[in-house]
Amino acid sequence: MFLSRNARAEDFESAAMPHLNDLFRTALRVIGNRSEAEDLVQEAYLQAWKSFHRFEPGTNCRAWLYKILFHVIQHHRRKWYNKSSVRENESVMETLAYEPPVAHDLSDEDVLAAFDKIPRHYREVVLLADVHEFSYKEVAETLAVPVGTVMSRLSRGRKLLRQELAGFAMNYGIKEEDRSA
């Protein structure tokens, strides 16, 4: 608590900087714009630095940073779009049992292009759970939503991604028969 500013800055950097790449990747996929994502990550780090005195060493720094990042992102959206994001129809996919084939050799660009097409609520949950391997509980805490919402968004987000990827599969000429060959 009473360390010099430089010593505190060193502590902060060694705890927080290793997560920079992951935070940037997350912000970029949620926001979809590189320079905005950079600004938001920078802002998240600044906020984290300001409240670093409240961070307890030994607790989960990564989860703490993600929480701050999503708080900054929400704030940014409220500020610039002046509305909460449009609620996607979360019941649309309730009974869908459509499991389209997906190509094996999609490029990263194809996968990201497909992923970026799915609505933000779903992207956020899929990113946290599938890419960054947070538990349902951690995702719920990061996004400040109930665990049940995390589960339903994750399930639908994965389905939506699969549908988008199937679009690429169609373009590549992959048909259902090919799968069972």
Binding site: V41, V102, H104, D108, L112, R158, L165
Partner: peptide
């Protein structure tokens, strides 16, 4: 496979 593909694609991006 989709999960792995997505993870790989997202993690291949580096912060400037």
């Amino acid at each position: 496979r989709i999960k792995t593909q997505l993870k790989r694609a997202v993690l291949n991006v580096q912060a400037p």
